[in-house]
């Protein structure tokens, strides 16, 4: 029987590998969902009826069903129903499927936050830009956008912290993220079994990472305090 100190490096090594997967899923989701959410938000506010209905319908479905179901359907549907596993096999396929599910899911939540942010900028701002001869594009990027960002940072911070924890759902399609790595030592892995303490360590990884994010997002909020 190994001592705790002997087991520790093995566990930390495994958790680091798992956390890297968690981190990759988190970063890819954020990079994908932030812009996709903006597109969906504009779609949901569009004057083109069909686009508006489609985007609002997507938001309704995605926000109205569990992310876990979405993960399962997105991963298994192509292979089982269409007889064509577009994701490919193995860890890579599972990771790509997880990314798609997370990006779509989070884009819909972000879209609603963006919509609230855009609509909370007073219409007088756009009108002021218009009477000064600015184009709609110029008004959006030079007048509305920063005011919108200032308003959405607090709700986005919430979603981003939730995303860090939600990545653990990807284990339902056997993506080996950090909790998977920690739990392995309960069942037995690398000569360690029946150990629950690695799971506590996974919690510490989450805590530290979310702590860093909280500080960074707070910094961003402070940066935007120069105007009201």
């Amino acid at each position: 029987m190994q001592t705790f100190m002997e087991q520790l490096p093995t566990v930390i090594g495994a958790l680091n590998v798992g956390f890297l997967q968690t981190l990759k899923l988190f970063v890819v989701t954020l990079l994908g969902a932030v812009p996709l959410g903006l597109i969906i938000a504009f779609g949901a506010m569009s004057k083109v009826k069909i686009l508006k209905v489609l985007c609002r319908g997507l938001i309704w479905i995605i926000r109205g069903t569990p992310l876990m179901i979405q993960l399962l359907i997105i991963y298994f549907f192509p292979g089982l129903v269409l007889a064509n596993n577009v994701w490919g096999g193995g860890e890579t396929g599972r990771f790509i499927a997880a990314c798609v599910a997370f990006i779509v899911n989070y884009a819909c939540y972000f879209a609603e936050i963006y919509r609230g942010g855009i609509q909370s900028v007073p219409v007088g701002q756009e009108e002021a830009g218009m009477v000064l001869g600015m184009t709609r594009r110029q008004i959006f990027f030079n007048v509305t956008l920063l005011q919108m960002i200032k308003r959405i940072v607090p709700p986005m911070s919430n979603e981003i912290l939730t995303l860090v924890k939600d990545t653990s759902l990807a284990r339902i399609i056997a993506m080996q993220e950090i909790i998977w790595a920690g739990q392995a030592f309960m069942k037995g892995s690398q000569g360690i079994s029946g150990a629950i303490w690695p799971l506590f360590f996974t919690a510490i990884y989450y805590l530290i990472f979310n702590g860093i994010l909280t500080v960074l997002l707070r910094k961003l909020e402070e940066k935007l305090e120069f105007f009201q």
């Binding site: 701002q125 009108e127 002021a128 009477v131 001869g133 920063l146 005011q147 105007f227």
Partner: peptide, 15 residues
């Protein structure tokens, strides 16, 4: 652009 408009509520750009 033939016209300029000063609004009742200013509508200055806060940033």
């Amino acid at each position: 652009l033939h016209f300029g408009l000063v609004f009742q509520s200013f509508n200055l750009f806060p940033q």
